[in-house]
Amino acid sequence: MNQAVVVTWSESEQVIARSAFQKAYERAVAQLTAAVQAQAASLSTVESVWALHDFLSIERHTMEGRFDFRLEEILFVFASLVKENLLQLQELDGLDAEKLAKVAAMSRF
């Protein structure tokens, strides 16, 4: 029988995880804002307006899916954020060595 491995988080690890998550979120928002400003500056046709709308719809869906803070899945989220350069492994310093190793390993794929 397969049983899920329960990862425990100390209070200090939860604070570190929450802080790192927030930093990555702020970076993603800054990137999105810059992209939207660049696209909005070049709007000249109704088609370009609809293209911006489509871009925003996709990005909203992506952001809402990516930035879901649940401890049971956060190591996967962190690996994805590291891979996308929205988070640095050093920002997770203070987490258990095994958690850090998992994030580092998963971020390589």
Rank of each mutant, 00 (worst) to 15 (best):
V82M: 04
L100P: 07
E13I: 06
V29P: 02
A28G: 01
S107N: 01
H61G: 07
A20C: 02
Q3P: 09
D54T: 14
Q37L: 12
F67D: 01
D93L: 12
A17P: 00
V77M: 02
V15R: 03
M1G: 15
V6K: 13
L32M: 11
W9E: 04
L56R: 10
V103G: 06
I58Y: 11
Q3F: 12
F21A: 01
F67K: 02
L71T: 06
V6F: 10
G65F: 02
S48C: 07
F21Q: 03
A51P: 04
L87S: 06
A79Q: 05
Q37N: 14
V103E: 02
E72H: 12
S48Y: 11
Q22L: 10
R27K: 12
V46L: 15
A40N: 11
K23W: 03
Q39C: 05
V103A: 06
T45E: 09
D96M: 03
A79T: 02
Q39T: 04
V15I: 10
L89K: 02
A105H: 12
R66Q: 07
T62G: 01
Q39A: 15
A35I: 00
A24D: 03
F76A: 15
Q14N: 08
N85E: 14
S57K: 14
M106G: 03
M63Q: 13
M1D: 13
V103K: 08
